[in-house]
Every structure is written in structure tokens, then in C-alpha cells.
Design a protein around this nucleic acid. Sequence first.
DNA 1: GTCTTTCGCTACGAGTCGTAGCGTAACTGG
DNA 2: CCAGTTACGCTACGACTCGTAGCGAAAGAC
Lengths: 208, 208
Amino acid sequence: MCSEPSPGRTARPGRPRSAEADAAILLATRQALVELGWSKLTMGDVATRAGVAKTTLYRRWAGKNELVVDAVAVLFDELELPDLGSLAADVEGVVLQFASILQRPETKTALMAVVAESTRDDALRGRIRSAIVDRQKRLVLIGRERAQVRGEIPYEADAALSARHADLIFDVVAGAVVHRALVSAEPVDREWARDFTALICTGLQTTT
Amino acid sequence: MCSEPSPGRTARPGRPRSAEADAAILLATRQALVELGWSKLTMGDVATRAGVAKTTLYRRWAGKNELVVDAVAVLFDELELPDLGSLAADVEGVVLQFASILQRPETKTALMAVVAESTRDDALRGRIRSAIVDRQKRLVLIGRERAQVRGEIPYEADAALSARHADLIFDVVAGAVVHRALVSAEPVDREWARDFTALICTGLQTTT
DNA sequence: GTCTTTCGCTACGAGTCGTAGCGTAACTGG
DNA sequence: CCAGTTACGCTACGACTCGTAGCGAAAGAC
């Protein structure tokens, strides 16, 4: 026994994969997305930009879809939500956080494309979910809990119903921001965020 | 003078374009979308399915993007909204109308893809707007006016503010449905539509 | 040193793109 | 009926991308 130095950690023999190559590839992918967009981005081009052989890309990613998801996912790491003191302020904060990432050219062109591909590829959908969607969703969950602590919205006894409601809120917030930014193609600025917050907090029938 | 028989109407000499070919191409495009999805759909394949030369496609559409927009756009023609008697019922109706189209495999795979392309192509964005987005938006405008007539929501004096608010509502409704159907990849059924309607009508702070 | 894995490089068949050129078909106006 | 004009089907083409295979060399584990 005791043949494994540490379970799974660098236990494999042979030359290890270059971490620098990984970083260079993902960076090159983002740069290529900005310059070329999704459709004109090619694996060969990314390899050249990264100073790496094309075969190296295919050893690590199955194709363009997976590569781009990973390349864009790191941009969502910066998502954080300081406590702004009220539900309305937190909603506005979430909206502006989403928007700040969605307005970058590399996410603009890549996000919808990989979502489109994911409609025919379950594995890709899972990758998007864990790498991007869940990180966004976390903000919504945090904001809701804060509002409950403040007493702005009630706690829910039924856990299943609570989860369903959280999913709903997330789809509304994320969907609205994405639709505004990419389909309507108009800016998600502070003014829009304020209007949206008013609508989502008090509803249609009380908004003037 | 009087050299034009009727202004622009079939006034041009030469062989007219075959309307049947148009219909066959758009139908073939939708079928190919269902079977192959967006990324594996090729112009040559569509031409073969439609029983048409590849060059004929390029004479009418600049490329895959424009072709698919037109092919999918006709699906949005069926959008209608019977008066269901209340704001809540109308919202639910709009949601289910959107969903019924978005759940079709050809729209699922195509819509996000062309939106992604449109982020780098202004002409394409305009085409999407007039062929698809505006048709959806109409339902929202109709629903709002009905609610105003019923007295459920107030009229707005400021026209600019009124338009801004309508845009907001549209992005929220359409965005939420799209996000639920394509990103979260879960069904937009009557239950979800009811939950969404409750949220959008009365707001977060009054929802249990 | 030996084993194992990764790396860069080259080369390849397969497939797609968008266009050009040709002869033919269809419709208009004199 | 006869030009003139436009659309059509067909073929062929160079350019490009794809994803893979094969090679020798490099890098770490034992």
C-alpha cells in the first residue's frame, strides 16, 4: 500500500501538461473572439496566436464549443455582490454586474453562440451551466437571502417551492439583461437598471 | 411619361423569380435545422433538399444567416393574442405563445445562433428585428393597451417614457421566456407561466 | 536509464465556401 | 414574332477549415 503519493494529484507519470499553454490558449481565444467573432474564429488561428500546435488544442478540448466556454467562463469569476443595504439596490447591483460582463465583445459574440450549440449537445449544456450559469445564479441566491434577513421578502417554508421561485427570479433577471443587451442591442445602463428594478420589485400594476 | 404600368409591381422585364422555389427553400431550411441543427446545416444541403441549384440560394440570400432568419421568421406569423379578460391572463397568454414557438427544435437551434451572429453584423440585426422581434413586441403592446382600457394599469402622459417602459416590459417577458427555454433548458409550461405572471404583475415584495 | 505522456511539426482526405461560366428557360416590350 | 433581360440548373474551381495520423524530441516519474 501507500503506493500513491497523493490521490490523483500529479500522480501520473510522464510529462505534465503545460499550465502556461493553457493560459496562453484561453487568452488567445478571447483575443480572437474580439477580433474575429464566433463564426470566423478557427482552431488553427487560436493555436497560432497562442504559439502552440493545433494538435495540442485538440488534446485538451473536443472542439471550438468547449474551448470558447472555458475561455469565456473565467470572465464570470469576477462576479461579486457587495451588500448595498436594500433589495432594490441589490437587484440593481446584480443587473449591472451581469451587464458589465455581457457588454464585452468577447462575451457578446460567444455566449449566444454556445447556448445555441448547447440545444443539440447535452454535455455542452452541462459545461455552460457549471462554468457560467451557476456563477450568475449564485448572486441571485445571495440577494434573496439578504432580503429575507432584512425582512423585505418572506422566508418560504416549502423547499421545493422556494427553489422553483429562485429559478424563476433568475430566469427573469438574467433573461431580461441578456435580451436587452444582445437582442434589443441597447445599453444596460444605470437608468435601465433602475427602471427594471422598480418593475421587478413592485410589479406592473403599481408602476406608473 | 406613363411608361410604368404599375409602379414597381412586376414591371421588370425578364424571367421572374420562382415563388415555389422560395417556399421550397425555406421549408427545406427548416427541415434541415430540425435534423442537423445550426452548425451542421450547409447551403449545399439545403439546395439539394429543395431541389434547387446552390447558386439560386446565393442569388437570393447573402448567406446562411439571412436564409435562416427568413426561414424561421414565418413561424412567428402565427402570433396572436385573444383578449383573455385580464392583464394576468393576457401576460400568461403572451408567455405561452412565445413558448410554443421557442420549443420547436428549428427555432431552438436557430434563434440564438443568428442573434450571436448579429452582434457583429448590423444589417443582420435589423433583419432579425423586423422579421422576428417586432412581431413579438406587438403582442406586448396590445396587451398593455388592453390593460389600460380595463383600468388595470394607468395611461402614461409622456410618450417617450411610455415607449421606454414598453421596451423594458418586452425585454423582461421575452428575455425570461428565452432564458428559461434555452439557457435553463426547462419547459415553459402553464405552471411556470402562472408563476411568472404573478411575479411580473405584483412584484417581488408582495409575492410569497 | 526506462517508461510514459506531452509537445511541435508536417501532411493528409474530407468537406464547405462562395463564385464564375455556360447554355437554357421564362417573361416583357416593340 | 423577335430581341432584350433576367432567372435557372449545372459544373468546376481555388481557398479554406476540419480533425486525425505519424514522427522525433522534450519533460517528468520510477
